[in-house]
Amino acid sequence: CHSECLGNCSQPDDPTKCVACRNFYLDGRCVETCPPPYYHFQDWRCVNFSFCQDLHHKCKNSRRQGCHQYVIHNNKCIPECPSGYTMNSSNLLCTPCLGPCPKVCHLLEGEKTIDSVTSAQELRGCTVINGSLIINIRGGNNLAAELEANLGLIEEISGYLKIRRSYALVSLSFFRKLRLIRGETLEIGNYSFYALDNQNLRQLWDWSKHNLTITQGKLFFHYNPKLCLSEIHKMEEVSGTKGRQERNDIALKTNGDQASCENELLKFSYIRTSFDKILLRWEPYWPPDFRDLLGFMLFYKEAPYQNVTEFDGQDACGSNSWTVVDIDPPLRSNDPKSQNHPGWLMRGLKPWTQYAIFVKTLVTFSDERRTYGAKSDIIYVQTDATNPSVPLDPISVSNSSSQIILKWKPPSDPNGNITHYLVFWERQAEDSELFELDYCLKGLKLPSRTWSPPFESEDSQKHNQSEYEDSAGECCSCPKTDSQILKELEESSFRKTFEDYLHNVVFVPRKT
C-alpha cells in the first residue's frame, strides 16, 4: 500500500485506493498535508475557505447554543480562536489581540433580562453583547459592586439597553466600559436606550469621564423622579442622539420631579488639616426662599486615587461607600458681607490618608415646582503625618564578641513616609551569675543571650482551647457569634421535631 494509506488498500502504491488515510483526505486521495488554498479540518480532512465560511455563517444565523462559528488559524479551520487571539470578521482569520481579548457573548432569543446578581454573573467577562440587555433589578445585597464585577467589562451592545423598574439602582456607572450601543435591534418605538419607572436612579454616568455613542435609535425617559433633566440632556449631547427624540420621548413632568437638581456650584473657602482632623468651610448658599434650606450634607471617604465619582458603590438597598454628615444651616444675616460661612470639623480620621470630599445642599421643593440647590466639586484632601507606631517583631542576635545583629519589621501604621529608623542602645553591667558559677561542674549549661522565638506554653494553649472559665478566673470563653447562636437554635429545633416524629412513629394507638 501507499505510504499515506492506513489499515489496508485495494490497489498497491495508489493513494486513492486506501481504506483510511494516515494524515489527511483531499478529493478522494490521501495526502501528507493540505496544500494551499485548503485548510486542515478536524485533523483528517482538507477543506477550502468557502466550506469553513459556510459553517461560520450557519452557526451565526441559527443562534443555536453550542454550535461553533468556525475560524481560520495556522492553516486550520477550527471552532474558535485560541487564547490571546480574536477573529477578523472580513476573512475569519485569528489575529493577536492588542491588550485583553474581546469576548463576544451571543444571547438566546436576542435579549437577556438581568433581574438578579445570579443572572448578571452569566455575563461575567463579556466585552461584546450580541443582542439586547434588559435591566430589571428590584433589590439585593452589595448590588453596585456585584454588577460592576460582572457587567463592568461590557464595551458594546449590538441591540438596545433597557432599564425598567430597577428600584435598587442609583447610577449606571457599573457599566464602566460601555462605549457603544449599535441599535441594530430596537425596542418598540425605535428606541435604543429605554429608561422607565426607576424610582431611585439619580445618575446615568459621570459624563466628564465617560463617552457613549448610540449609532441608531432614540432615547426614552419616563417616570424617573430623581433623575434630573440636565442629566438626560447631557446624554443626548454626548451620545449623538440630540435631535432624534420626539416631543413625548422625554417626559418633562415625570423626570426629576422629586430630585434636588443642583444648578449652582458650592466653593470651599477654608481648608485646614491635622493628622486626624480636617476643618472645612464653604461659601454660604440661600435659595430664593431661605426657609427652603434644610441644611447641608457632607460626604467623605478614603480615596487612594483621584478618580472618585459621587455615586460609586451606591445602591438604593443601603450600600453606600460614603460617610454622610448632616449639618444645620448657619444663622442668616441681613448683611451679605457678614454672612457666616458654614463648615464642619471632621474628626477621627487616619493620618497621612487622602480623602475625597464634597458637600451639597438639602432643600425642600418650592411652590413653583422649581428645584434649587448647590453642590461642590469633589475635592481631595490629605491629612498630615504623625509619629508612626512601633516597629514590629524586633530580633537581636550576637554573632561574635563585638557585634549584635538587630532586625525588625516595619510598623503596622507608618502614618507617613518613613525615611529612617533611630536605634538606641545602652551598655549593661555583666551578670554576677557568670562569676559565681563553678565551671568545672559536669552538665553545666552556660547562660545564653542568643534570641529564641517566643512560644506559647501548654497552660496558655489549654486556656485558649477551654470553653469555660478556669477556677483562677484568668480566662473566659469568647462570646458566641450570631451565626453560632442561630445554628444552635436550628439544631435544637431539629432535635425537638425529630423526637416528636419518633414518638408518633414508635407509639401507635392500640386498636379498641
Rank of each mutant, 00 (worst) to 15 (best):
D384F: 02
D377W: 09
R165V: 10
F358G: 15
V128E: 01
V238S: 13
Q199L: 11
P329E: 05
A195M: 12
S119D: 13
Y355P: 00
K277Y: 15
L151Q: 00
K360P: 00
Q314Y: 02
N320A: 09
F220T: 12
A385L: 01
A144G: 12
L279M: 10
Q199E: 15
N141E: 14
S400H: 13
N340R: 02
L349N: 00
R291G: 05
Y305L: 13
E156W: 07
E146D: 07
W207Y: 04
R138V: 12
W282S: 00
L252V: 13
T241D: 12
P342A: 09
G295Q: 15
L172T: 12
Y160C: 15
T241K: 12
S158W: 12
G343E: 15
D312C: 05
R347D: 13
S208T: 10
M297K: 12
P225G: 14
D249N: 10
A316N: 10
L392N: 06
S321H: 11
P287R: 05
N334T: 14
P329V: 05
S398R: 05
I129N: 00
A303R: 06
Q245S: 10
V117L: 12
W207G: 03
S319A: 06
A259M: 06
S402I: 03
E187M: 14
Y305T: 10
S171R: 08
L392K: 05
P351L: 02
N307H: 13
I154A: 09
H233P: 02
E283K: 06
N340T: 14
F174D: 00
Q203K: 12
T254N: 12
L212Q: 05
R244C: 06
L204F: 10
N399P: 13
P336T: 09
V117M: 15
N248F: 15
R247P: 08
Y285N: 09
S338E: 13
L133H: 00
I214C: 08
Q314P: 02
I157F: 02
Y191H: 11
R165S: 15
L212D: 00
P329S: 05
T273C: 14
P391L: 05
A356L: 01
S398Y: 10
F268G: 00
E368A: 11
L362Q: 03
G373A: 02
I357M: 01
L265Y: 08
W205H: 07
K301A: 13
T273D: 01
S192Y: 01
A195Q: 02
P391R: 02
L123K: 00
A374H: 06
I157H: 01
L143H: 03
M297D: 06
I379Q: 14
D393C: 15
L108M: 14
S208R: 08
P329A: 07
E155Q: 06
I395S: 07
K226E: 08
S166Y: 02
E109L: 10
K253S: 09
N142P: 12
N224W: 01
E187A: 04
P351C: 07
T185M: 08
N307K: 04
D115K: 12
K375A: 06
S166T: 11
D249G: 10
S166Q: 13
W344Q: 12
F311S: 08
S119Q: 05
D292T: 09
V104C: 03
W352C: 15
L133M: 08
Q216R: 06
T361M: 09
T323Q: 14
D328E: 15
D326C: 03
E146Q: 08
D312N: 06
P394D: 05
I134A: 08
C228H: 12
D393P: 04
Q245R: 10
L107I: 06
Q314K: 04
I157M: 08
Y285K: 05
L252W: 12
R247G: 12
M235G: 04
D249K: 15
L133I: 02
V128R: 15
Q306I: 02
S239D: 02
P330W: 02
L219G: 04
N334F: 03
R247M: 09
A149R: 06
K162I: 04
W207T: 10
Y167R: 10
G110L: 09
K209M: 12
F311T: 12
T353W: 03
H233D: 09
Q258I: 02
Q354P: 09
L172G: 02
K218V: 14
R281C: 15
L406F: 13
F193Y: 03
Y305Q: 04
C228L: 04
R164H: 15
I214L: 09
G189T: 05
L186K: 09
I395H: 12
I188K: 08
S398P: 12
F268S: 01
I232S: 02
